[in-house]
């Protein structure tokens, strides 16, 4: 396939209509939201849109030339698929620009029931090969794939040439342990699962205890970390906990660190990536305003043939663990 270079579409997260407006006002081209139930992978208390809010949110976006995508990206429960089907119906009736889904049952339902509804393949599907992506294109007619965060830039370049579908890549925000859509760690320690109920480390299972000057984090029955004074904290997930192995304390699975691929934007544009995505529907208006502004200015700078370097500092202090990485995009360990 030939590579089509185009201006990168900036896709930003929104956990509320207020956050959606903040994202667009800061420069987002598109925003992705979820409904306030288990059909999306950020099913946290008080977060997300009510189904009744969605039509107004879509109208607001369209009036500003922006697009709204609805994430219906958890895996439908056997014997209880109604919530996922209703979410697809709600999205289609509200006139969203696309739904983002991973479950083949959800994709099949959307394809058959709403033939005009644009389908994007969620990162939760973990489709990182031309064959896997080709299957979703041919079978469900997906128009865009959100790549799992396990590929190097070189691998993405080859993939873009090998598939006939838009490619979207994460460029900022939280990282998982690179088994997206297949992680059972949270389910091991808590009643919730990111893939099925939409919650990794459900907050009712998270507790922090101040002991003297240090803070201990517990997830369900497990103590998973302790932060000393001045030490940066991360999300309370098992994958980012610290454990003792062979008498050594370490982040056994993954360091608490955020993805930041701002300095790869120009490369992504050159290799034909269509859209870049910001993680963090659970974060809020202040976060999305700053990140969308930084990436908006960076993308515009690239279009003008300028460097993105002046905008790196706009993201200071936002990262998990106060540290950033280019992750697998600059894979050096294989």
């Amino acid at each position: 396939m030939s590579v089509k270079q185009q201006k990168l579409e900036l896709v930003c997260p929104a956990g509320s209509a207020a956050m959606m407006r903040a994202a667009v006002e800061a420069g987002a081209d598109s925003v992705y939201c979820g409904l306030n139930d288990e059909t999306n992978a950020r099913n946290f208390p008080g977060l997300n849109l009510d189904a009744a809010e969605l039509p107004d949110a879509v109208r607001w976006m369209h009036n500003r030339g922006a697009r709204l995508m609805l994430a219906i990206n958890t895996f439908a429960r056997a014997g209880g698929v109604a919530a996922w089907q209703e979410a697809v119906d709600t999205a289609a009736k509200a006139g969203v620009d696309a739904i983002i889904a991973a479950d083949i049952g959800v994709l099949a339902y959307a394809r058959d029931t709403w033939p005009g509804l644009r389908l994007h393949l969620s990162v939760q599907a973990a489709a990182g090969t031309a064959q896997a992506i080709g299957f979703y294109v041919q079978t469900y007619g997906i128009k865009r794939v959100v790549l799992p965060r396990v590929l190097s830039v070189e691998e993405i370049a080859k993939l873009v040439r090998a598939v006939d579908v838009e490619v979207e890549a994460f460029v900022y925000g939280g990282l998982c342990v690179m088994a997206e859509g297949r992680c059972a760690l949270s389910s091991y320690a808590t009643p919730g699962s990111p893939n099925l109920s939409g919650v990794c480390s459900p907050p009712e299972s998270v507790n922090y205890h101040q002991t003297g000057a240090s803070v201990a984090a517990r997830l369900g029955a497990f103590a998973i970390d302790r932060f000393e004074p001045g030490e940066a904290a991360g999300y309370p997930t098992l994958c980012k906990g610290r454990f003792v192995v062979d008498d050594k304390i370490s982040h056994l699975f993954e360091d608490p660190v955020s993805l930041n691929a701002m300095d790869l934007l120009e490369t992504f544009r050159k290799i034909g990536v269509a859209a870049v995505k910001i993680e963090g529907r659970q974060r809020g208006k202040a976060y999305v305003s700053r990140v969308a502004d930084a990436f908006r200015q960076s993308i515009d700078a690239i279009e003008a043939g300028q460097s993105t370097a002046p905008f790196a500092s706009l993201l200071d202090g936002l990262a998990e663990g106060q540290r950033e990485t280019a992750g697998a995009y600059r894979k050096t360990w294989r």
Partner: peptide, 23 residues
């Protein structure tokens, strides 16, 4: 992350309040 704020007790209650205020 920067430890500027400390949350002790029911994290789900804190998150619900935060998300409500955000909206």
């Amino acid at each position: 992350f920067s430890r500027a704020i400390v949350v002790e007790g029911a994290t789900d209650a804190a998150m619900a309040l935060h998300n409500t205020l955000e909206a």
